[in-house]
Nucleic acid binder design. Sequence first.
DNA 1: AATTATTTTTAGGTTTGCCTAACTTTATTT
DNA 2: AAATAAAGTTAGGCAAACCTAAAAATAATT
Lengths: 218, 218
Amino acid sequence: MKFSISEENYIKSIYHLQVLHQRVNTMMLAEMVKTKAASVTEMLKKLHKKKLIDYEPYKSFILTDTGNKIALNIIRKHRLWEFFLVNKLGFNWDQVHDIAEELEHINSSELISRLDEYLQFPSFDPHGDPIPNSKGKITDLKRSNLIDIPLKKTVVVSQIKDQSITMLDLLKHFKIGIGTKIKVNKRFEFDGSVEIKIDQMPNAVLSNQVAKNIYCVI
Amino acid sequence: MKFSISEENYIKSIYHLQVLHQRVNTMMLAEMVKTKAASVTEMLKKLHKKKLIDYEPYKSFILTDTGNKIALNIIRKHRLWEFFLVNKLGFNWDQVHDIAEELEHINSSELISRLDEYLQFPSFDPHGDPIPNSKGKITDLKRSNLIDIPLKKTVVVSQIKDQSITMLDLLKHFKIGIGTKIKVNKRFEFDGSVEIKIDQMPNAVLSNQVAKNIYCVI
DNA sequence: AATTATTTTTAGGTTTGCCTAACTTTATTT
DNA sequence: AAATAAAGTTAGGCAAACCTAAAAATAATT
Ligand SMILES: [Mn+2]
Ligand SMILES: [Mn+2]
Ligand SMILES: [Mn+2]
Ligand SMILES: [Mn+2]
Protein backbone atom coordinates (compact mmCIF):
# COMPACT_ATOMS: atom_id res chain seq x y z
CA MET A 1 0.00 0.00 0.00
CA LYS A 2 1.15 3.50 -0.82
CA PHE A 3 0.48 6.64 1.19
CA SER A 4 0.47 10.32 0.37
CA ILE A 5 3.09 12.64 1.82
CA SER A 6 0.40 14.11 4.08
CA GLU A 7 -0.67 10.72 5.36
CA GLU A 8 2.94 9.79 6.04
CA ASN A 9 3.55 13.00 7.97
CA TYR A 10 0.47 12.39 10.12
CA ILE A 11 1.47 8.77 10.80
CA LYS A 12 4.99 9.74 11.78
CA SER A 13 3.74 12.53 14.05
CA ILE A 14 1.31 10.20 15.81
CA TYR A 15 4.22 7.85 16.44
CA HIS A 16 6.38 10.56 17.99
CA LEU A 17 3.52 11.81 20.15
CA GLN A 18 2.80 8.29 21.34
CA VAL A 19 6.40 7.95 22.53
CA LEU A 20 5.86 11.03 24.69
CA HIS A 21 2.23 10.62 25.81
CA GLN A 22 1.10 7.01 25.21
CA ARG A 23 -2.11 8.21 23.52
CA VAL A 24 -2.62 11.08 21.10
CA ASN A 25 -5.39 13.64 20.80
CA THR A 26 -6.55 15.94 18.06
CA MET A 27 -5.09 19.21 19.33
CA MET A 28 -1.63 17.78 19.95
CA LEU A 29 -1.52 16.33 16.49
CA ALA A 30 -2.84 19.52 14.89
CA GLU A 31 -0.03 21.46 16.47
CA MET A 32 2.61 18.95 15.42
CA VAL A 33 1.58 18.79 11.77
CA LYS A 34 1.00 22.56 11.74
CA THR A 35 -2.63 22.46 10.72
CA LYS A 36 -6.09 22.96 12.26
CA ALA A 37 -8.07 20.50 14.36
CA ALA A 38 -10.74 20.19 11.69
CA SER A 39 -8.20 18.97 9.14
CA VAL A 40 -6.86 16.47 11.66
CA THR A 41 -10.31 14.99 12.24
CA GLU A 42 -10.69 14.41 8.51
CA MET A 43 -7.34 12.68 8.31
CA LEU A 44 -8.11 10.56 11.39
CA LYS A 45 -11.18 9.20 9.65
CA LYS A 46 -9.12 8.31 6.63
CA LEU A 47 -6.33 6.67 8.63
CA HIS A 48 -8.91 4.73 10.60
CA LYS A 49 -10.61 3.48 7.44
CA LYS A 50 -7.19 2.30 6.25
CA LYS A 51 -6.74 0.52 9.61
CA LEU A 52 -3.65 2.50 10.57
CA ILE A 53 -5.06 3.91 13.82
CA ASP A 54 -7.50 2.81 16.50
CA TYR A 55 -9.87 5.72 16.63
CA GLU A 56 -13.30 6.51 17.99
CA PRO A 57 -14.80 10.02 17.72
CA TYR A 58 -14.06 12.28 20.70
CA LYS A 59 -11.55 9.79 22.11
CA SER A 60 -7.76 9.79 22.00
CA PHE A 61 -6.17 7.40 19.51
CA ILE A 62 -3.10 5.22 18.85
CA LEU A 63 -1.44 3.53 15.89
CA THR A 64 -2.35 -0.04 15.03
CA ASP A 65 0.47 -2.55 14.50
CA THR A 66 0.44 -1.82 10.79
CA GLY A 67 0.45 1.90 11.49
CA ASN A 68 3.40 1.44 13.77
CA LYS A 69 5.39 -0.45 11.16
CA ILE A 70 4.75 2.25 8.60
CA ALA A 71 5.79 4.97 11.04
CA LEU A 72 9.03 3.16 11.84
CA ASN A 73 9.84 2.84 8.17
CA ILE A 74 9.39 6.55 7.59
CA ILE A 75 11.53 7.33 10.63
CA ARG A 76 14.15 4.89 9.38
CA LYS A 77 14.29 6.74 6.08
CA HIS A 78 14.39 10.14 7.77
CA ARG A 79 17.29 9.20 10.01
CA LEU A 80 19.30 7.39 7.34
CA TRP A 81 19.07 10.46 5.12
CA GLU A 82 20.11 12.69 8.01
CA PHE A 83 23.12 10.47 8.58
CA PHE A 84 23.96 10.68 4.88
CA LEU A 85 23.63 14.46 4.80
CA VAL A 86 25.95 14.94 7.79
CA ASN A 87 28.48 12.16 7.25
CA LYS A 88 28.77 12.17 3.48
CA LEU A 89 27.75 15.64 2.34
CA GLY A 90 29.25 17.49 5.31
CA PHE A 91 26.13 19.28 6.56
CA ASN A 92 25.91 20.40 10.18
CA TRP A 93 23.46 18.48 12.31
CA ASP A 94 21.28 21.57 12.68
CA GLN A 95 20.79 21.92 8.90
CA VAL A 96 19.53 18.50 7.96
CA HIS A 97 16.09 18.11 9.48
CA ASP A 98 14.04 19.96 6.87
CA ILE A 99 15.77 18.28 3.95
CA ALA A 100 15.27 14.83 5.51
CA GLU A 101 11.64 15.81 6.03
CA GLU A 102 11.32 15.76 2.23
CA LEU A 103 13.68 12.88 1.47
CA GLU A 104 11.84 10.56 3.87
CA HIS A 105 8.95 10.41 1.41
CA ILE A 106 10.96 9.07 -1.52
CA ASN A 107 9.46 5.76 -2.35
CA SER A 108 11.92 2.93 -3.00
CA SER A 109 12.88 0.16 -0.63
CA GLU A 110 15.77 -0.73 -2.92
CA LEU A 111 17.08 2.82 -2.51
CA ILE A 112 16.88 2.66 1.25
CA SER A 113 18.53 -0.73 1.61
CA ARG A 114 21.37 0.39 -0.67
CA LEU A 115 21.73 3.66 1.22
CA ASP A 116 21.80 1.76 4.51
CA GLU A 117 24.56 -0.49 3.20
CA TYR A 118 26.49 2.47 1.74
CA LEU A 119 26.41 4.15 5.15
CA GLN A 120 27.49 0.86 6.77
CA PHE A 121 24.26 0.27 8.65
CA PRO A 122 24.46 3.13 11.15
CA SER A 123 22.58 2.71 14.44
CA PHE A 124 22.14 6.37 15.36
CA ASP A 125 21.38 9.54 13.44
CA PRO A 126 23.31 12.81 13.89
CA HIS A 127 21.04 13.80 16.80
CA GLY A 128 21.69 10.53 18.59
CA ASP A 129 18.30 9.04 17.76
CA PRO A 130 18.28 5.32 17.00
CA ILE A 131 17.73 4.24 13.38
CA PRO A 132 15.22 1.38 13.06
CA ASN A 133 16.62 -1.54 11.05
CA SER A 134 14.93 -2.89 7.94
CA LYS A 135 12.54 -4.93 10.09
CA GLY A 136 11.61 -1.87 12.14
CA LYS A 137 13.57 -2.97 15.17
CA ILE A 138 15.11 -0.25 17.30
CA THR A 139 18.08 -0.92 19.58
CA ASP A 140 18.50 2.06 21.82
CA LEU A 141 21.05 2.86 24.48
CA LYS A 142 20.52 3.38 28.20
CA ARG A 143 20.97 7.11 28.62
CA SER A 144 20.86 9.46 31.57
CA ASN A 145 19.76 13.03 31.63
CA LEU A 146 22.41 15.65 32.31
CA ILE A 147 20.28 16.63 35.30
CA ASP A 148 20.74 13.22 36.90
CA ILE A 149 24.30 12.10 36.27
CA PRO A 150 26.75 11.99 39.17
CA LEU A 151 28.95 15.04 39.72
CA LYS A 152 32.56 15.06 38.46
CA LYS A 153 31.94 12.02 36.27
CA THR A 154 32.89 12.32 32.59
CA VAL A 155 30.14 11.10 30.30
CA VAL A 156 29.42 11.25 26.57
CA VAL A 157 26.59 13.26 25.04
CA SER A 158 24.52 10.84 23.00
CA GLN A 159 21.11 12.36 22.32
CA ILE A 160 19.36 15.72 22.18
CA LYS A 161 15.62 15.73 22.80
CA ASP A 162 14.57 19.20 21.66
CA GLN A 163 15.90 19.54 18.15
CA SER A 164 14.65 23.01 17.33
CA ILE A 165 17.02 25.26 15.41
CA THR A 166 17.32 27.52 18.44
CA MET A 167 18.38 24.63 20.67
CA LEU A 168 20.88 23.26 18.18
CA ASP A 169 22.24 26.76 17.74
CA LEU A 170 22.78 27.13 21.47
CA LEU A 171 24.55 23.77 21.66
CA LYS A 172 26.81 24.75 18.78
CA HIS A 173 27.83 27.86 20.73
CA PHE A 174 28.87 25.73 23.69
CA LYS A 175 30.57 23.22 21.37
CA ILE A 176 28.26 20.46 22.55
CA GLY A 177 27.45 17.73 20.04
CA ILE A 178 26.84 14.00 19.90
CA GLY A 179 30.01 12.35 21.20
CA THR A 180 31.17 15.34 23.22
CA LYS A 181 32.79 14.38 26.54
CA ILE A 182 31.21 16.36 29.32
CA LYS A 183 31.44 16.61 33.11
CA VAL A 184 28.99 18.20 35.57
CA ASN A 185 30.88 20.21 38.19
CA LYS A 186 27.99 21.61 40.16
CA ARG A 187 24.24 21.64 40.31
CA PHE A 188 22.46 24.78 41.51
CA GLU A 189 19.43 23.98 43.62
CA PHE A 190 18.00 27.46 43.16
CA ASP A 191 17.12 27.24 39.46
CA GLY A 192 18.19 23.72 38.55
CA SER A 193 21.02 24.96 36.33
CA VAL A 194 24.29 23.01 36.01
CA GLU A 195 27.90 24.04 35.62
CA ILE A 196 29.71 21.86 33.09
CA LYS A 197 33.22 21.35 31.81
CA ILE A 198 34.22 20.31 28.33
CA ASP A 199 37.86 19.75 27.27
CA GLN A 200 39.54 22.87 25.87
CA MET A 201 36.60 25.00 26.96
CA PRO A 202 36.09 27.26 29.98
CA ASN A 203 33.47 26.26 32.55
CA ALA A 204 29.95 27.00 31.41
CA VAL A 205 26.51 27.10 32.99
CA LEU A 206 23.50 25.54 31.30
CA SER A 207 19.96 26.40 32.32
CA ASN A 208 17.73 23.63 33.60
CA GLN A 209 15.64 23.94 30.44
CA VAL A 210 18.71 23.18 28.31
CA ALA A 211 20.18 20.47 30.55
CA LYS A 212 16.87 18.58 30.58
CA ASN A 213 17.22 18.00 26.84
CA ILE A 214 20.72 16.52 26.90
CA TYR A 215 21.15 12.78 27.39
CA CYS A 216 24.43 10.99 27.98
CA VAL A 217 25.91 7.51 28.22
CA ILE A 218 27.93 6.83 31.32
CA MET B 1 9.59 31.26 -6.57
CA LYS B 2 8.56 27.71 -5.70
CA PHE B 3 6.73 25.27 -7.95
CA SER B 4 4.64 22.20 -7.34
CA ILE B 5 5.86 18.78 -8.39
CA SER B 6 3.29 18.82 -11.18
CA GLU B 7 4.41 22.17 -12.46
CA GLU B 8 8.03 21.03 -12.40
CA ASN B 9 7.22 17.88 -14.34
CA TYR B 10 5.41 19.89 -17.01
CA ILE B 11 8.26 22.40 -17.31
CA LYS B 12 10.84 19.67 -17.63
CA SER B 13 8.77 17.84 -20.24
CA ILE B 14 8.32 20.99 -22.31
CA TYR B 15 12.08 21.41 -22.25
CA HIS B 16 12.73 17.88 -23.49
CA LEU B 17 10.11 18.20 -26.22
CA GLN B 18 11.60 21.50 -27.34
CA VAL B 19 14.99 19.83 -27.81
CA LEU B 20 13.34 17.37 -30.18
CA HIS B 21 10.76 19.55 -31.94
CA GLN B 22 11.62 23.23 -31.40
CA ARG B 23 8.01 24.02 -30.43
CA VAL B 24 5.61 21.99 -28.31
CA ASN B 25 1.90 21.31 -28.68
CA THR B 26 -0.80 20.15 -26.33
CA MET B 27 -1.08 16.53 -27.48
CA MET B 28 2.67 15.86 -27.33
CA LEU B 29 2.87 17.24 -23.84
CA ALA B 30 -0.21 15.33 -22.69
CA GLU B 31 1.40 12.10 -23.81
CA MET B 32 4.71 12.90 -22.13
CA VAL B 33 3.24 13.79 -18.75
CA LYS B 34 0.77 10.89 -19.02
CA THR B 35 -2.38 12.97 -18.71
CA LYS B 36 -5.20 14.26 -20.89
CA ALA B 37 -5.17 17.27 -23.21
CA ALA B 38 -7.72 19.13 -21.10
CA SER B 39 -5.45 18.95 -18.05
CA VAL B 40 -2.54 20.22 -20.12
CA THR B 41 -4.50 23.25 -21.30
CA GLU B 42 -5.23 24.17 -17.69
CA MET B 43 -1.57 23.89 -16.76
CA LEU B 44 -0.52 25.90 -19.81
CA LYS B 45 -2.68 28.76 -18.63
CA LYS B 46 -1.08 28.62 -15.22
CA LEU B 47 2.48 28.43 -16.56
CA HIS B 48 1.73 31.30 -18.90
CA LYS B 49 0.38 33.44 -16.08
CA LYS B 50 3.61 32.73 -14.20
CA LYS B 51 5.56 33.81 -17.29
CA LEU B 52 7.25 30.43 -17.75
CA ILE B 53 5.96 29.78 -21.26
CA ASP B 54 5.04 31.84 -24.32
CA TYR B 55 1.55 30.61 -25.05
CA GLU B 56 -1.45 31.67 -27.08
CA PRO B 57 -4.57 29.50 -27.29
CA TYR B 58 -4.58 27.01 -30.20
CA LYS B 59 -0.92 27.70 -30.96
CA SER B 60 2.20 25.73 -30.11
CA PHE B 61 4.29 27.08 -27.24
CA ILE B 62 7.85 27.35 -25.89
CA LEU B 63 9.55 28.09 -22.58
CA THR B 64 10.51 31.65 -21.74
CA ASP B 65 14.07 32.33 -20.56
CA THR B 66 12.94 31.95 -16.96
CA GLY B 67 11.12 28.72 -17.83
CA ASN B 68 14.27 27.44 -19.48
CA LYS B 69 16.40 28.17 -16.44
CA ILE B 70 13.99 26.35 -14.19
CA ALA B 71 13.88 23.35 -16.53
CA LEU B 72 17.67 23.14 -16.60
CA ASN B 73 17.82 23.20 -12.82
CA ILE B 74 15.38 20.30 -12.52
CA ILE B 75 17.33 18.35 -15.14
CA ARG B 76 20.55 19.11 -13.28
CA LYS B 77 19.07 17.65 -10.11
CA HIS B 78 17.68 14.62 -11.93
CA ARG B 79 21.02 13.76 -13.54
CA LEU B 80 23.13 14.42 -10.45
CA TRP B 81 20.91 12.06 -8.48
CA GLU B 82 21.14 9.44 -11.24
CA PHE B 83 24.91 9.74 -11.11
CA PHE B 84 24.82 9.31 -7.35
CA LEU B 85 22.57 6.27 -7.52
CA VAL B 86 24.79 4.49 -10.04
CA ASN B 87 28.25 5.54 -8.90
CA LYS B 88 27.77 5.61 -5.15
CA LEU B 89 24.91 3.24 -4.40
CA GLY B 90 25.72 0.73 -7.14
CA PHE B 91 22.43 0.77 -9.03
CA ASN B 92 22.35 -0.25 -12.69
CA TRP B 93 21.70 2.54 -15.14
CA ASP B 94 18.34 1.03 -16.06
CA GLN B 95 17.05 1.21 -12.47
CA VAL B 96 17.62 4.82 -11.62
CA HIS B 97 15.25 6.87 -13.72
CA ASP B 98 12.08 6.51 -11.64
CA ILE B 99 13.86 7.20 -8.38
CA ALA B 100 15.53 10.30 -9.81
CA GLU B 101 12.10 11.34 -11.06
CA GLU B 102 11.16 11.76 -7.39
CA LEU B 103 14.49 13.02 -6.06
CA GLU B 104 14.62 15.82 -8.64
CA HIS B 105 11.83 17.60 -6.75
CA ILE B 106 13.65 17.85 -3.43
CA ASN B 107 13.98 21.50 -2.72
CA SER B 108 17.39 22.63 -1.46
CA SER B 109 20.08 24.36 -3.47
CA GLU B 110 22.51 23.73 -0.62
CA LEU B 111 21.82 20.01 -0.97
CA ILE B 112 22.46 20.03 -4.70
CA SER B 113 25.67 22.03 -4.55
CA ARG B 114 27.02 19.73 -1.86
CA LEU B 115 25.96 16.65 -3.79
CA ASP B 116 27.63 18.06 -6.91
CA GLU B 117 30.85 18.58 -4.99
CA TYR B 118 30.64 15.15 -3.36
CA LEU B 119 30.32 13.55 -6.80
CA GLN B 120 33.23 15.71 -8.02
CA PHE B 121 31.22 17.80 -10.44
CA PRO B 122 30.36 15.13 -13.00
CA SER B 123 29.65 16.29 -16.57
CA PHE B 124 27.53 13.36 -17.72
CA ASP B 125 24.87 11.18 -16.16
CA PRO B 126 24.85 7.35 -16.41
CA HIS B 127 22.99 7.52 -19.74
CA GLY B 128 25.59 9.87 -21.22
CA ASP B 129 23.39 12.94 -20.96
CA PRO B 130 25.18 16.16 -20.02
CA ILE B 131 24.61 17.58 -16.51
CA PRO B 132 23.96 21.35 -16.52
CA ASN B 133 26.28 23.22 -14.14
CA SER B 134 24.99 25.40 -11.33
CA LYS B 135 24.48 28.27 -13.78
CA GLY B 136 22.50 26.05 -16.12
CA LYS B 137 25.25 25.79 -18.68
CA ILE B 138 25.53 22.53 -20.61
CA THR B 139 28.77 21.45 -22.26
CA ASP B 140 27.97 18.57 -24.52
CA LEU B 141 30.19 16.37 -26.70
CA LYS B 142 30.16 16.00 -30.47
CA ARG B 143 28.65 12.60 -31.01
CA SER B 144 27.86 10.49 -34.06
CA ASN B 145 25.08 8.05 -34.49
CA LEU B 146 26.03 4.39 -34.78
CA ILE B 147 24.30 4.50 -38.17
CA ASP B 148 26.76 7.08 -39.47
CA ILE B 149 30.20 6.18 -38.13
CA PRO B 150 32.84 4.85 -40.54
CA LEU B 151 33.16 1.06 -40.81
CA LYS B 152 35.93 -0.78 -38.90
CA LYS B 153 36.58 2.26 -36.70
CA THR B 154 36.53 1.68 -32.94
CA VAL B 155 34.45 4.30 -31.15
CA VAL B 156 33.10 4.74 -27.63
CA VAL B 157 29.42 4.61 -26.76
CA SER B 158 28.59 7.87 -25.03
CA GLN B 159 24.84 8.41 -25.05
CA ILE B 160 21.59 6.49 -25.43
CA LYS B 161 18.60 8.42 -26.74
CA ASP B 162 15.68 6.07 -26.02
CA GLN B 163 15.94 5.29 -22.31
CA SER B 164 12.93 3.04 -21.95
CA ILE B 165 13.35 -0.01 -19.73
CA THR B 166 12.99 -2.27 -22.77
CA MET B 167 15.80 -0.49 -24.60
CA LEU B 168 18.13 -0.51 -21.61
CA ASP B 169 17.33 -4.17 -21.12
CA LEU B 170 18.30 -4.97 -24.70
CA LEU B 171 21.56 -3.05 -24.35
CA LYS B 172 22.37 -4.92 -21.18
CA HIS B 173 21.96 -8.20 -23.07
CA PHE B 174 24.50 -7.10 -25.68
CA LYS B 175 26.77 -5.73 -22.94
CA ILE B 176 26.54 -2.23 -24.37
CA GLY B 177 26.84 0.64 -21.92
CA ILE B 178 28.28 4.13 -21.70
CA GLY B 179 32.01 3.80 -22.30
CA THR B 180 31.78 0.53 -24.22
CA LYS B 181 34.26 0.32 -27.14
CA ILE B 182 32.40 -0.67 -30.26
CA LYS B 183 33.19 -1.21 -33.98
CA VAL B 184 30.76 -1.40 -36.90
CA ASN B 185 31.77 -4.25 -39.24
CA LYS B 186 29.00 -4.00 -41.76
CA ARG B 187 25.89 -2.06 -42.59
CA PHE B 188 23.00 -3.86 -44.27
CA GLU B 189 21.29 -1.69 -46.87
CA PHE B 190 18.20 -3.88 -46.85
CA ASP B 191 16.88 -3.02 -43.38
CA GLY B 192 19.45 -0.56 -42.10
CA SER B 193 20.74 -2.97 -39.48
CA VAL B 194 24.42 -3.02 -38.45
CA GLU B 195 26.81 -5.78 -37.47
CA ILE B 196 28.97 -4.74 -34.53
CA LYS B 197 31.94 -6.08 -32.59
CA ILE B 198 32.66 -5.56 -28.93
CA ASP B 199 35.77 -6.93 -27.19
CA GLN B 200 35.25 -10.37 -25.64
CA MET B 201 31.91 -10.71 -27.39
CA PRO B 202 30.85 -12.49 -30.57
CA ASN B 203 29.70 -10.41 -33.53
CA ALA B 204 26.15 -9.14 -33.11
CA VAL B 205 23.56 -7.50 -35.31
CA LEU B 206 21.56 -4.51 -34.11
CA SER B 207 18.36 -3.44 -35.84
CA ASN B 208 18.19 0.02 -37.35
CA GLN B 209 15.71 1.01 -34.65
CA VAL B 210 18.25 0.16 -31.95
CA ALA B 211 21.31 1.57 -33.73
CA LYS B 212 19.57 4.90 -34.29
CA ASN B 213 19.46 5.41 -30.52
CA ILE B 214 23.16 4.82 -29.85
CA TYR B 215 25.57 7.75 -30.05
CA CYS B 216 29.35 7.51 -29.93
CA VAL B 217 32.44 9.67 -29.71
CA ILE B 218 35.02 9.03 -32.38
C1' DA C 1 -25.26 19.84 40.00
C1' DA C 2 -24.94 23.61 37.05
C1' DT C 3 -22.18 26.60 34.48
C1' DT C 4 -18.36 27.63 31.79
C1' DA C 5 -14.36 26.39 29.08
C1' DT C 6 -12.03 23.41 26.06
C1' DT C 7 -11.83 19.93 22.73
C1' DT C 8 -13.61 17.69 18.83
C1' DT C 9 -16.51 17.14 15.03
C1' DT C 10 -19.47 18.75 11.23
C1' DA C 11 -20.86 21.84 7.57
C1' DG C 12 -19.69 24.48 3.91
C1' DG C 13 -15.73 26.64 1.05
C1' DT C 14 -11.20 26.94 -1.43
C1' DT C 15 -7.21 25.35 -4.30
C1' DT C 16 -4.67 22.07 -7.08
C1' DG C 17 -4.69 18.68 -10.40
C1' DC C 18 -7.04 15.38 -12.56
C1' DC C 19 -11.14 13.51 -15.54
C1' DT C 20 -15.04 13.13 -19.47
C1' DA C 21 -18.00 15.19 -22.69
C1' DA C 22 -19.19 18.90 -25.54
C1' DC C 23 -17.78 22.54 -28.31
C1' DT C 24 -14.53 25.41 -31.21
C1' DT C 25 -10.66 26.07 -33.99
C1' DT C 26 -7.29 24.48 -37.22
C1' DA C 27 -5.63 21.02 -40.52
C1' DT C 28 -6.38 17.61 -44.02
C1' DT C 29 -9.04 15.41 -47.57
C1' DT C 30 -12.03 15.04 -51.09
C1' DA D 1 -14.53 25.30 -51.44
C1' DA D 2 -16.79 21.93 -48.58
C1' DA D 3 -16.61 18.29 -45.80
C1' DT D 4 -14.31 15.64 -42.54
C1' DA D 5 -10.77 14.76 -39.16
C1' DA D 6 -7.75 16.08 -35.58
C1' DA D 7 -6.23 19.13 -32.07
C1' DG D 8 -7.27 22.27 -28.49
C1' DT D 9 -10.31 24.57 -25.21
C1' DT D 10 -14.24 25.09 -22.12
C1' DA D 11 -17.65 23.36 -18.91
C1' DG D 12 -18.83 20.73 -15.20
C1' DG D 13 -17.31 17.21 -11.76
C1' DC D 14 -14.32 14.65 -8.47
C1' DA D 15 -10.72 13.71 -4.78
C1' DA D 16 -7.22 15.32 -1.57
C1' DA D 17 -5.96 18.68 1.89
C1' DC D 18 -6.52 22.53 3.62
C1' DC D 19 -9.53 26.46 5.88
C1' DT D 20 -13.32 29.14 9.09
C1' DA D 21 -17.42 29.11 11.64
C1' DA D 22 -20.96 26.68 14.05
C1' DA D 23 -22.52 22.76 16.73
C1' DA D 24 -21.80 18.88 19.83
C1' DA D 25 -19.33 16.40 23.30
C1' DT D 26 -16.30 16.26 27.12
C1' DA D 27 -13.66 18.39 30.91
C1' DA D 28 -13.00 21.71 34.48
C1' DT D 29 -14.88 25.15 37.77
C1' DT D 30 -17.79 27.13 40.71
MN1 LIG E 1 7.98 14.78 5.97
MN1 LIG F 1 17.27 13.33 13.68
MN1 LIG G 1 9.60 14.15 -11.63
MN1 LIG H 1 19.55 10.07 -17.36
